[in-house]
Measured scan of single mutants.
Amino acid sequence: MQRVNMIMAESPGLITICLLGYLLSAECTVFLDHENANKILNRPKRYNSGKLEEFVQGNLERECMEEKCSFEEAREVFENTERTTEFWKQYVDGDQCESNPCLNGGSCKDDINSYECWCPFGFEGKNCELDVTCNIKNGRCEQFCKNSADNKVVCSCTEGYRLAENQKSCEPAVPFPCGRVSVSQTSKLTRAETVFPDVDYVNSTEAETILDNITQSTQSFNDFTRVVGGEDAKPGQFPWQVVLNGKVDAFCGGSIVNEKWIVTAAHCVETGVKITVVAGEHNIEETEHTEQKRNVIRIIPHHNYNAAINKYNHDIALLELDEPLVLNSYVTPICIADKEYTNIFLKFGSGYVSGWGRVFHKGRSALVLQYLRVPLVDRATCLRSTKFTIYNNMFCAGFHEGGRDSCQGDSGGPHVTEVEGTSFLTGIISWGEECAMKGKYGIYTKVSRYVNWIKEKTKLT
């Protein structure tokens, strides 16, 4: 034993070699072989497995989906700052455009905790909710729209109204504003409101030439003092309507412009014939205590009207009353817009006519005020429907199939267009061939041609 100890002390290297040989010859039971080890760690190889990531292109799944990435790591994937920024906006807080917040056709661009709407022409605001041009839906104005110097929408209202708090709607500024039905039992019968379409306001006024200088022999019209197929109006439903009495009662109609003036057809009036105007009328054979009678003290036909040349060209006249009318729910003026808007309103496509005229061709006159909704007829169809001249200051309205029309005794009465609950004068009943005849239409004086003249002559002093 002493000898062994001496050998170990003198030859430590020998001992180490012996131990190493023993270990190498022993069977290893701690580690699995290569094949079995792979069965336990069965993990798919990654895209760049075996390579240094710093030297390969980034992978979106590896960089940002398996674990949260930084902007720089995302930049490695896209290799483009702009594309990385677009991805980053949604990656950080989701897609803010998912709810489609942009209105009126706006395009949404996502941002971090926010979004941006790219608005089409005519709109602005956070969600493109603000109209900035009158060309689109009248700028959301209830009545009139004008573009300011910086191309912003400025709404306005006709006389007797003021802008509401929203700067879009119009509200009454006087007790009985024009064009409004205020009798409670008839307010439910107000005709369907007309909503502004998209309009090209630059070209809204037709490029028409008034044929002022045409000389033409007097034409022989049949029954051209021209509501057939209409309905009984309720008291106060058309408070701007008046009836004219002269040699015979209810020979023509008219509309209240203001307390002192009536507008009617020029062919209705004769110099030297006494005319009485009755406002607030409903049943011409009954006294309903809503009527107001006034005498006409002055007749002003349009300066281009000449019955000797043509009885229905420039067929418009103004009547001055001896005493002002007292405005109330049964006696209310009709609204008159400017030339541009009167023309736009007419193009809405349908209007209402009213009167006490004959209820059928050569038949009896109506006792109760009649009204009828009539569609506008395109000019080409209008011209083809008659052998008589249709001037540019006239328009056609009615039904091709016949059966409904204005008729004798309705002449001078109103053709009105309702705009968001307020009625505007767009025409004056003038003439036609018979009444409600198939293929024939009622012919009306186009008020847009005469609004400046009306307003100039009827100013209240």
Rank of each mutant, 00 (worst) to 15 (best):
E259G: 03
P324E: 07
N36R: 10
D212I: 10
N328V: 00
R83C: 05
V199M: 13
V377M: 06
G236D: 03
C117H: 00
A164I: 04
N5L: 11
H34F: 08
K68M: 08
K311N: 05
L60W: 06
G349Y: 11
H34Q: 09
K260Q: 05
L41W: 13
F78M: 15
Y305A: 02
I390K: 06
L321T: 02
T276P: 01
E193V: 11
A9N: 11
K234Y: 14
F123W: 09
K45E: 15
F78G: 15
H289K: 12
E231D: 10
Q408F: 14
M394W: 07
T342G: 04
D93K: 05
V326Y: 12
G13P: 09
I443D: 02
L376P: 04
C119T: 01
T271H: 13
G160Q: 03
I297A: 08
E159W: 05
V174E: 09
V278P: 00
K137E: 08
G421N: 10
V368D: 04
I15T: 05
C407E: 03
V359T: 14
N147G: 09
E73H: 14
L52E: 15
N313L: 09
V419P: 01
D200V: 11
W356K: 11
R373H: 14
S99T: 07
V153F: 04
N138S: 03
K109C: 02
L346E: 04
T342S: 14
S148P: 06
V56E: 07
S169Y: 06
A266I: 00
K188C: 05
C145P: 01
L103Y: 07
I112K: 08
D150R: 09
N100G: 05
G357S: 13
C141L: 00
K188L: 07
K168L: 10
R373Y: 07
E76A: 04
L24T: 05
V195W: 11
C396E: 01
Y330W: 14
W261P: 01
A26S: 10
V269P: 02
Q219F: 10
L244G: 01
F388L: 14
H34E: 07
G357P: 08
V153N: 04
G229P: 13
P414N: 10
E10C: 11
Q167A: 07
V277L: 03
Q408N: 14
F345H: 02
C252W: 01
T381G: 04
L24H: 03
T276E: 11
H34D: 10
E288D: 10
F388N: 10
Q57I: 06
S169C: 04
D315W: 01
E124G: 05
G403F: 10
K51F: 04
W453Q: 00
E286L: 13
A380N: 08
S430G: 13
I390C: 04
E320R: 02
Y91A: 15
V419G: 01
F144L: 03
E142V: 06
I136T: 04
E456I: 11
T342K: 00
V174I: 09
T29H: 13
V199T: 12
P44G: 11
P120H: 05
K387M: 08
N306F: 04
V451D: 01
I299V: 08
P414Y: 06
W261N: 01
M394S: 06
E281P: 09
Y91S: 15
Y352N: 06
